[in-house]
């Protein structure tokens, strides 16, 4: 507990110092608009949707429309990229995030001046030895490493720290991977896919892979716990891979025949909005996916897409 307190204090000092420098710096520079950019409707969009391109090309376009990676990653920062690597399946099955997208994101982080980029996932199968297999089979381990990321393990309890979640209705406390607590920037990179028991797995559901005991979610109240976790930590950026969208037999998937080629990418810093939009890309009304509604009710984000500033782009269209 003591350790955590000192860590929080340090974090607070660091953050307030950084904010102070940023504010002061921008005034000196004479462009204070950047601080209030969100207020302007023509400024940063709430959500960017790109279509009809390869995963990396779509990401290049989307992050440009979001205002560039430099807006999210500052020089010398540590970044955590959290893809969905939950099953030992090939990318064609659509059960895991597209490796090319992960690679592209890592490259952009370094391009923005990141000091270190970590990639990890606590895979769905809790049996020992599966994590390695998932990293390998999904192609993400290799792809992330080739872009210079540190592929960290998530399959040991020693990496996790207990945290409490104020305001949670079900998941009052859980153990979170230390990288989530330590990284300056947290980028959530889920894949949009079918899920037998929650209807869909997107961005909020993907955060189940940063805690140690995911079965606690299942035994408490799966959807409420998924929403509750976002009270503890909201990713700085959510990048939803909807290139190949598994339509049936999720989350594990069956064969490539059950995958629809949607070639879509969604980027937002509002985790509820991005889930609502992705849900529509899948072909389901977001109201049916209970955790999206719960997230909206907890004020984690806005699921009413018509209230948001959405920018759309169709490559070659």
């Amino acid at each position: 507990m003591n350790k955590l307190n000192s860590k929080e204090r340090r974090e607070f000092l660091k953050k307030s110092l950084a904010t102070g420098v940023a504010v002061g710096g921008s005034f000196l520079w004479g462009t204070p608009e950047i601080l209030f950019a969100k207020a302007a409707s023509s400024g940063t969009p709430d959500l960017v949707a790109v279509k009809n391109g390869e995963p990396d090309a779509m990401f290049n376009q989307a992050i440009f429309m979001m205002g560039g990676m430099k807006k999210f990653v500052k020089k010398g920062q540590t970044v955590l990229v959290k893809p969905n690597i939950s099953f030992a399946r090939k990318p064609e099955i659509g059960a895991t995030t597209n490796p090319l997208l992960v690679k592209s994101i890592v490259a952009h982080c370094f391009g923005a001046g990141a000091k270190k980029v970590y990639v990890f996932d606590n895979v769905a199968s809790s049996s020992y030895g599966m994590a390695q297999k998932c990293y390998k089979e999904s192609g993400i381990g290799e792809a992330a490493k080739s872009a210079g990321a540190l592929v960290a393990p998530g399959d040991n309890e020693k990496y996790y720290q207990k945290v409490t979640i104020p305001g949670a209705k079900a998941l009052v406390s859980t153990e979170v991977h230390e990288l989530v607590l330590e990284a300056d920037v947290f980028i959530n990179v889920p894949i949009l896919k079918n899920h037998h028991y929650t209807y869909q797995s997107i961005a909020m559901k993907n955060l189940m892979g940063v805690v140690w005991d995911r079965m606690k979610y299942h035994s408490l109240d799966l959807e409420q716990s998924i929403a509750d976790f976002c009270l503890f930590k909201k990713p700085d950026l959510n990048i939803v891979d909807a290139y190949r969208v598994m339509q049936r037999f999720g989350p594990r998937g069956s064969t490539p025949e059950n995958v629809a080629l949607k070639k879509t990418l969604l980027v937002s810093n509002d985790i509820v909005a991005v889930d609502a939009a992705a849900s529509k890309v899948y072909g389901m009304e977001p109201e049916k996916v209970r955790y999206i509604q719960l997230g909206h009710d907890l004020n984690i984000g806005n699921m009413n897409l018509n209230e948001l500033n959405i920018r759309r782009h169709v490559i070659g269209g």
Binding site: A49, Q247, R248, T255, N258, A260, L261, K262, V281
Partner: peptide, 18 residues
């Protein structure tokens, strides 16, 4: 699996459902 109901690549549909 029963006959797939999955739509093939949506090349014609260029818009977004939102």
């Amino acid at each position: 699996p029963s006959a797939s109901t999955v739509q093939p690549a949506e090349k014609s549909n260029k818009g977004f459902p939102f």
